[in-house]
């Protein structure tokens, strides 16, 4: 877990690591990764990953519109909005 990796995953996570905490966090991450590395000693060839404890299949919905118009409520809880849109600083494409 080098500095560059920490920079990359911080960017992917949109998190900034304070300079004074950087060493500690890098250290922690490295220790955690070392700790979970013990999994690599286990032979898991031919073992299907278990991504959900329910080994079942999903129920699905019928194609029906059930939603109400929540425009006002939803724009109200947004940190920044006008009467029609959620607003963010101008994105330059």
């Amino acid at each position: 877990m080098d500095k560059k990796t920490v920079t990359t995953i911080s960017y992917l996570s949109r998190l900034k690591i304070d300079e004074e905490k950087e060493e500690k966090i890098t250290n922690d991450l490295e220790n955690i990764i070392k700790f979970v590395d013990q999994l690599n000693d286990i032979d898991t060839s031919d073992i299907e990953p278990l991504t959900n404890p329910l080994e079942k299949t999903a129920k699905t919905r019928d194609d029906i519109v059930t939603a109400d118009n929540l425009k006002k409520e939803l724009l109200e809880i947004a940190p920044s909005s006008n009467e029609d849109y959620f607003l963010v600083p101008r994105v330059v494409e």
Binding site: A58, K59, R61, D62, D63, K71, L75, F86
Partner: peptide
């Protein structure tokens, strides 16, 4: 009209869950 067809799920609010549309 903008933002009138937005369900809690489409908004990605905390704790909401997707259920797949069979017709798709």
């Amino acid at each position: 009209e903008s933002n009138t067809h937005v369900d809690l799920i489409d908004m990605g609010l905390p704790g909401v869950l997707p259920v797949a549309n069979k017709e798709a």
